[in-house]
Amino acid sequence: MKKILVTGANGQLGSELRVLAENYKNYEWFFADRIEITLNNLELLKTQLNNINPDVIFNCGAYTAVDKAEIEKETAFIINHLAVEIIAKFTSENNVKLIHVSTDYVFDGTSSIALNEEAQTNPINLYGQSKLAGEIACLKENPDSIIIRTSWVYSKFGNNFVKTMQRLMQEREAINVVNDQIGSPTYAHDLAKVMIDIVESPNWIPGIYNYSNEGEISWYDFALSIKELGRYNCNVVGVPSLSYFTPAKRPKFSLLDKKKIKEIYNLDIPDYKESLKKMF
Protein backbone atom coordinates (compact mmCIF):
# COMPACT_ATOMS: atom_id res chain seq x y z
CA MET A 1 0.00 0.00 0.00
CA LYS A 2 1.43 3.38 -1.03
CA LYS A 3 2.09 5.89 1.73
CA ILE A 4 1.21 9.54 1.04
CA LEU A 5 2.87 12.16 3.23
CA VAL A 6 1.01 15.49 3.49
CA THR A 7 3.05 18.37 4.90
CA GLY A 8 1.21 21.37 6.33
CA ALA A 9 -1.49 18.99 7.52
CA ASN A 10 -3.34 21.62 9.57
CA GLY A 11 -3.45 24.23 6.81
CA GLN A 12 -6.35 24.76 4.41
CA LEU A 13 -5.16 22.31 1.77
CA GLY A 14 -3.87 19.74 4.25
CA SER A 15 -7.20 19.81 6.11
CA GLU A 16 -9.18 19.31 2.88
CA LEU A 17 -6.91 16.39 1.93
CA ARG A 18 -7.61 14.86 5.35
CA VAL A 19 -11.35 15.01 4.61
CA LEU A 20 -10.90 13.44 1.15
CA ALA A 21 -8.53 10.74 2.47
CA GLU A 22 -11.55 9.01 3.99
CA ASN A 23 -12.60 8.11 0.41
CA TYR A 24 -9.13 6.79 -0.52
CA LYS A 25 -8.45 3.92 1.84
CA ASN A 26 -6.22 2.35 -0.83
CA TYR A 27 -3.44 4.65 0.47
CA GLU A 28 -1.76 4.91 3.84
CA TRP A 29 -2.01 8.59 4.71
CA PHE A 30 0.49 10.38 6.93
CA PHE A 31 -0.63 13.90 7.87
CA ALA A 32 2.34 15.79 9.27
CA ASP A 33 2.02 18.96 11.29
CA ARG A 34 4.90 21.31 12.17
CA ILE A 35 6.25 18.90 14.78
CA GLU A 36 6.30 15.77 12.60
CA ILE A 37 7.72 17.64 9.61
CA THR A 38 9.81 20.58 10.76
CA LEU A 39 10.31 22.75 7.69
CA ASN A 40 12.38 25.35 9.54
CA ASN A 41 14.90 22.83 10.95
CA LEU A 42 16.64 21.43 7.88
CA GLU A 43 18.79 18.77 9.56
CA LEU A 44 15.82 17.42 11.49
CA LEU A 45 13.73 17.49 8.30
CA LYS A 46 16.11 15.04 6.57
CA THR A 47 15.78 12.58 9.47
CA GLN A 48 11.99 12.95 9.58
CA LEU A 49 11.62 12.23 5.86
CA ASN A 50 13.73 9.08 6.17
CA ASN A 51 11.72 7.92 9.19
CA ILE A 52 8.34 8.43 7.50
CA ASN A 53 9.62 6.90 4.22
CA PRO A 54 6.67 7.86 1.97
CA ASP A 55 5.96 6.86 -1.65
CA VAL A 56 4.30 10.20 -2.46
CA ILE A 57 4.68 13.66 -0.92
CA PHE A 58 2.09 16.44 -1.16
CA ASN A 59 4.10 19.45 -0.02
CA CYS A 60 1.36 21.78 1.23
CA GLY A 61 3.44 23.23 4.08
CA ALA A 62 4.71 26.78 3.51
CA TYR A 63 5.42 30.13 5.06
CA THR A 64 2.36 32.07 3.82
CA ALA A 65 2.30 35.29 5.90
CA VAL A 66 2.84 37.62 2.93
CA ASP A 67 3.35 40.86 4.88
CA LYS A 68 5.32 39.27 7.70
CA ALA A 69 7.73 37.76 5.17
CA GLU A 70 9.03 41.30 4.47
CA ILE A 71 10.48 41.27 8.01
CA GLU A 72 11.04 37.52 8.50
CA LYS A 73 12.89 37.02 5.22
CA GLU A 74 15.25 34.34 6.55
CA THR A 75 12.44 32.19 7.95
CA ALA A 76 10.39 32.54 4.74
CA PHE A 77 13.34 31.42 2.61
CA ILE A 78 14.23 28.50 4.91
CA ILE A 79 10.68 27.12 4.72
CA ASN A 80 9.72 28.04 1.14
CA HIS A 81 13.10 27.48 -0.51
CA LEU A 82 15.65 25.41 1.45
CA ALA A 83 13.15 22.95 2.93
CA VAL A 84 11.68 22.41 -0.56
CA GLU A 85 15.20 21.75 -1.86
CA ILE A 86 15.69 19.04 0.79
CA ILE A 87 12.28 17.47 0.11
CA ALA A 88 12.92 17.44 -3.66
CA LYS A 89 16.38 15.90 -3.18
CA PHE A 90 14.90 13.23 -0.89
CA THR A 91 12.18 12.38 -3.43
CA SER A 92 14.71 12.18 -6.26
CA GLU A 93 17.11 9.90 -4.35
CA ASN A 94 14.31 7.61 -3.09
CA ASN A 95 12.10 7.45 -6.18
CA VAL A 96 9.25 9.25 -4.41
CA LYS A 97 6.57 11.19 -6.31
CA LEU A 98 6.37 14.87 -5.33
CA ILE A 99 3.57 17.40 -5.84
CA HIS A 100 4.70 20.79 -4.56
CA VAL A 101 2.24 23.67 -4.16
CA SER A 102 3.27 27.17 -5.29
CA THR A 103 1.59 30.51 -5.91
CA ASP A 104 0.50 33.18 -8.39
CA TYR A 105 2.70 35.59 -6.38
CA VAL A 106 5.69 34.48 -8.49
CA PHE A 107 4.33 37.00 -11.06
CA ASP A 108 4.58 40.80 -10.94
CA GLY A 109 0.97 41.49 -11.94
CA THR A 110 1.71 43.56 -15.05
CA SER A 111 0.13 41.11 -17.51
CA SER A 112 -3.28 41.80 -19.05
CA ILE A 113 -3.90 38.23 -20.23
CA ALA A 114 -4.18 34.99 -18.24
CA LEU A 115 -0.72 33.74 -17.30
CA ASN A 116 0.37 30.31 -18.54
CA GLU A 117 3.16 28.17 -17.12
CA GLU A 118 5.73 29.70 -19.49
CA ALA A 119 4.95 33.32 -18.50
CA GLN A 120 7.85 35.40 -17.18
CA THR A 121 8.17 35.26 -13.38
CA ASN A 122 9.13 38.41 -11.50
CA PRO A 123 7.89 38.42 -7.88
CA ILE A 124 7.33 41.85 -6.29
CA ASN A 125 7.42 40.73 -2.64
CA LEU A 126 9.63 38.51 -0.48
CA TYR A 127 6.99 35.81 -0.11
CA GLY A 128 6.82 35.50 -3.92
CA GLN A 129 10.61 35.50 -4.16
CA SER A 130 10.88 32.69 -1.59
CA LYS A 131 8.23 30.61 -3.40
CA LEU A 132 9.94 31.10 -6.78
CA ALA A 133 13.27 30.05 -5.25
CA GLY A 134 11.46 26.93 -3.99
CA GLU A 135 10.11 26.14 -7.46
CA ILE A 136 13.56 26.48 -9.04
CA ALA A 137 15.16 24.28 -6.36
CA CYS A 138 12.36 21.71 -6.67
CA LEU A 139 12.81 21.23 -10.43
CA LYS A 140 16.61 21.30 -10.16
CA GLU A 141 16.78 18.64 -7.43
CA ASN A 142 13.94 16.54 -8.85
CA PRO A 143 13.04 17.23 -12.50
CA ASP A 144 10.36 14.53 -12.20
CA SER A 145 8.33 16.55 -9.69
CA ILE A 146 5.04 18.36 -10.31
CA ILE A 147 4.52 21.95 -9.16
CA ILE A 148 1.00 23.39 -8.96
CA ARG A 149 0.69 27.17 -8.88
CA THR A 150 -2.55 28.30 -7.33
CA SER A 151 -4.18 31.56 -6.21
CA TRP A 152 -6.50 33.10 -3.61
CA VAL A 153 -6.97 29.85 -1.68
CA TYR A 154 -9.93 29.55 0.69
CA SER A 155 -11.61 26.76 2.65
CA LYS A 156 -13.84 26.17 5.64
CA PHE A 157 -10.55 25.50 7.48
CA GLY A 158 -7.92 28.03 8.59
CA ASN A 159 -7.82 31.77 8.00
CA ASN A 160 -8.76 33.08 4.58
CA PHE A 161 -10.59 35.86 2.73
CA VAL A 162 -13.97 34.12 2.67
CA LYS A 163 -14.07 33.48 6.42
CA THR A 164 -12.85 37.02 7.14
CA MET A 165 -15.60 38.47 4.93
CA GLN A 166 -18.25 36.26 6.56
CA ARG A 167 -17.22 37.57 9.97
CA LEU A 168 -16.92 41.25 8.98
CA MET A 169 -20.20 41.26 7.06
CA GLN A 170 -21.99 40.10 10.19
CA GLU A 171 -20.19 42.57 12.46
CA ARG A 172 -20.22 45.76 10.36
CA GLU A 173 -22.66 47.86 8.36
CA ALA A 174 -20.08 48.61 5.63
CA ILE A 175 -16.67 47.31 4.53
CA ASN A 176 -14.12 48.41 1.91
CA VAL A 177 -12.66 45.79 -0.44
CA VAL A 178 -9.92 46.24 -3.06
CA ASN A 179 -11.35 46.33 -6.59
CA ASP A 180 -8.22 46.60 -8.76
CA GLN A 181 -6.47 43.27 -8.11
CA ILE A 182 -7.66 40.66 -10.61
CA GLY A 183 -7.38 36.88 -10.41
CA SER A 184 -9.45 33.85 -9.54
CA PRO A 185 -10.10 32.12 -6.20
CA THR A 186 -9.27 28.49 -5.47
CA TYR A 187 -11.45 26.32 -3.25
CA ALA A 188 -8.88 24.19 -1.40
CA HIS A 189 -11.22 21.17 -1.56
CA ASP A 190 -11.13 21.29 -5.39
CA LEU A 191 -7.33 21.56 -5.48
CA ALA A 192 -6.96 18.70 -2.98
CA LYS A 193 -9.11 16.48 -5.22
CA VAL A 194 -6.98 17.38 -8.27
CA MET A 195 -3.78 16.40 -6.42
CA ILE A 196 -5.25 12.98 -5.63
CA ASP A 197 -6.52 12.63 -9.23
CA ILE A 198 -2.98 13.24 -10.52
CA VAL A 199 -1.57 10.47 -8.28
CA GLU A 200 -4.40 8.16 -9.35
CA SER A 201 -3.82 8.94 -13.03
CA PRO A 202 -1.65 6.64 -15.19
CA ASN A 203 -0.02 9.84 -16.52
CA TRP A 204 2.71 11.43 -14.46
CA ILE A 205 3.88 14.36 -16.57
CA PRO A 206 6.38 16.43 -14.53
CA GLY A 207 6.63 20.21 -14.63
CA ILE A 208 4.65 23.28 -13.62
CA TYR A 209 0.84 23.47 -13.77
CA ASN A 210 -1.63 26.25 -12.96
CA TYR A 211 -4.81 25.57 -11.02
CA SER A 212 -7.58 27.82 -9.72
CA ASN A 213 -11.33 27.90 -10.18
CA GLU A 214 -12.73 29.44 -13.36
CA GLY A 215 -13.62 33.13 -13.49
CA GLU A 216 -11.86 36.50 -13.75
CA ILE A 217 -12.76 38.69 -10.79
CA SER A 218 -11.47 41.26 -8.31
CA TRP A 219 -11.47 40.82 -4.53
CA TYR A 220 -14.44 43.22 -4.54
CA ASP A 221 -16.37 40.94 -6.93
CA PHE A 222 -15.48 37.99 -4.72
CA ALA A 223 -16.79 39.85 -1.66
CA LEU A 224 -20.07 40.60 -3.47
CA SER A 225 -20.51 36.87 -4.19
CA ILE A 226 -19.88 36.09 -0.51
CA LYS A 227 -22.44 38.75 0.49
CA GLU A 228 -25.00 37.28 -1.91
CA LEU A 229 -24.54 33.66 -0.81
CA GLY A 230 -24.47 34.57 2.89
CA ARG A 231 -27.43 36.96 2.49
CA TYR A 232 -25.60 39.60 4.49
CA ASN A 233 -26.91 43.18 4.69
CA CYS A 234 -23.44 44.76 4.86
CA ASN A 235 -22.63 47.48 2.29
CA VAL A 236 -19.54 46.43 0.28
CA VAL A 237 -17.56 49.35 -1.17
CA GLY A 238 -14.91 48.87 -3.86
CA VAL A 239 -11.67 50.81 -3.29
CA PRO A 240 -8.26 50.97 -5.05
CA SER A 241 -5.22 49.16 -3.61
CA LEU A 242 -3.66 52.55 -2.86
CA SER A 243 -6.27 53.02 -0.12
CA TYR A 244 -4.60 50.23 1.85
CA PHE A 245 -0.98 50.29 2.92
CA THR A 246 0.48 46.78 3.22
CA PRO A 247 4.18 46.03 3.87
CA ALA A 248 4.21 43.67 0.84
CA LYS A 249 3.05 44.69 -2.63
CA ARG A 250 0.45 42.47 -4.30
CA PRO A 251 0.30 41.66 -8.03
CA LYS A 252 -2.48 43.68 -9.72
CA PHE A 253 -3.25 40.88 -12.21
CA SER A 254 -2.50 37.22 -11.56
CA LEU A 255 -5.18 35.30 -13.43
CA LEU A 256 -3.87 31.80 -14.20
CA ASP A 257 -4.34 30.02 -17.53
CA LYS A 258 -5.39 26.41 -16.69
CA LYS A 259 -5.36 24.97 -20.22
CA LYS A 260 -2.35 22.67 -19.59
CA ILE A 261 -3.69 20.89 -16.49
CA LYS A 262 -7.17 20.59 -18.06
CA GLU A 263 -5.82 18.92 -21.19
CA ILE A 264 -3.21 16.63 -19.62
CA TYR A 265 -5.37 15.45 -16.72
CA ASN A 266 -8.73 15.78 -18.44
CA LEU A 267 -10.12 18.09 -15.76
CA ASP A 268 -13.42 19.90 -15.66
CA ILE A 269 -12.69 22.91 -13.43
CA PRO A 270 -15.72 24.40 -11.65
CA ASP A 271 -16.58 28.10 -11.81
CA TYR A 272 -15.53 29.99 -8.67
CA LYS A 273 -19.13 30.70 -7.66
CA GLU A 274 -20.12 27.04 -7.93
CA SER A 275 -17.30 26.10 -5.55
CA LEU A 276 -18.06 28.99 -3.21
CA LYS A 277 -21.65 27.69 -2.95
CA LYS A 278 -20.26 24.26 -2.02
CA MET A 279 -18.24 25.76 0.82
CA PHE A 280 -21.31 27.67 2.08
Results as ranks from 00 to 15, higher is better:
residue 153 V to A: 06
residue 154 Y to D: 10
residue 154 Y to L: 11
residue 154 Y to E: 11
residue 154 Y to F: 15
residue 154 Y to R: 12
residue 154 Y to A: 09
residue 154 Y to S: 10
residue 155 S to I: 11
residue 155 S to E: 07
residue 155 S to W: 08
residue 156 K to S: 08
residue 156 K to Y: 10
residue 157 F to W: 08
residue 157 F to V: 03
residue 157 F to H: 14
residue 157 F to K: 04
residue 157 F to D: 00
residue 158 G to N: 10
residue 158 G to L: 07
residue 159 N to S: 10
residue 159 N to R: 05
residue 160 N to P: 08
residue 160 N to G: 11
residue 160 N to W: 10
residue 161 F to R: 09
residue 161 F to A: 07
residue 163 K to L: 04
residue 164 T to A: 01
residue 164 T to K: 06
residue 165 M to L: 15
residue 165 M to K: 01
residue 166 Q to G: 04
residue 167 R to N: 12
residue 168 L to D: 02
residue 168 L to S: 02
residue 169 M to Q: 05
residue 169 M to D: 03
residue 169 M to L: 11
residue 170 Q to M: 09
residue 172 R to H: 12
residue 174 A to K: 14
residue 174 A to G: 00
residue 174 A to R: 14
residue 174 A to P: 02
residue 176 N to W: 04
residue 176 N to P: 02
residue 177 V to S: 01
residue 178 V to C: 06
residue 179 N to M: 05
residue 180 D to Q: 11
residue 180 D to H: 06
residue 180 D to S: 04
residue 180 D to Y: 05
residue 181 Q to D: 01
residue 181 Q to C: 07
residue 182 I to F: 02
residue 183 G to E: 11
residue 183 G to H: 11
residue 184 S to W: 05
residue 185 P to N: 06
residue 185 P to S: 07
residue 185 P to Y: 05
residue 185 P to I: 04
residue 185 P to W: 04
residue 186 T to C: 15
residue 186 T to G: 11
residue 186 T to Y: 12
residue 186 T to E: 12
residue 186 T to N: 12
residue 187 Y to F: 15
residue 188 A to V: 09
residue 188 A to Q: 10
residue 189 H to L: 12
residue 190 D to L: 06
residue 190 D to P: 04
residue 190 D to N: 14
residue 190 D to T: 05
residue 191 L to W: 03
residue 191 L to R: 05
residue 192 A to L: 13
residue 192 A to N: 12
residue 193 K to G: 03
residue 193 K to T: 13
residue 193 K to S: 13
residue 193 K to L: 14
residue 194 V to R: 13
residue 194 V to D: 13
residue 194 V to M: 13
residue 195 M to Q: 11
residue 196 I to F: 09
residue 196 I to C: 08
residue 196 I to E: 06
residue 196 I to N: 05
residue 197 D to W: 07
residue 198 I to F: 10
residue 198 I to C: 13
residue 198 I to W: 11
residue 198 I to D: 06
residue 198 I to T: 09
residue 198 I to A: 10
residue 198 I to Q: 07
residue 199 V to P: 04
residue 199 V to N: 08
residue 200 E to G: 09
residue 200 E to H: 09
residue 201 S to E: 07
residue 201 S to H: 10
residue 201 S to F: 04
residue 202 P to A: 13
residue 202 P to Y: 08
residue 202 P to F: 08
residue 204 W to Y: 15
residue 204 W to T: 04
residue 205 I to K: 11
residue 205 I to T: 14
residue 205 I to G: 06
residue 205 I to N: 07
residue 206 P to S: 14
residue 206 P to T: 14
residue 206 P to K: 13
residue 207 G to N: 15
residue 208 I to A: 09
residue 209 Y to V: 09
residue 210 N to D: 13
residue 210 N to I: 13
residue 210 N to V: 13
residue 211 Y to A: 14
residue 212 S to V: 13
residue 213 N to F: 09
residue 214 E to Y: 06
residue 214 E to K: 15
residue 215 G to F: 05
residue 215 G to L: 08
residue 217 I to G: 04
residue 217 I to P: 00
residue 218 S to H: 06
residue 218 S to V: 05
residue 219 W to R: 14
residue 219 W to T: 03
residue 220 Y to R: 01
residue 220 Y to Q: 00
residue 220 Y to G: 05
residue 221 D to W: 01
residue 221 D to R: 00
residue 221 D to E: 03
residue 222 F to R: 03
residue 222 F to K: 00
residue 222 F to V: 00
residue 222 F to N: 00
residue 223 A to M: 04
residue 223 A to W: 02
residue 223 A to S: 06
residue 223 A to C: 07
residue 224 L to S: 00
residue 225 S to D: 03
residue 225 S to V: 02
residue 225 S to C: 03
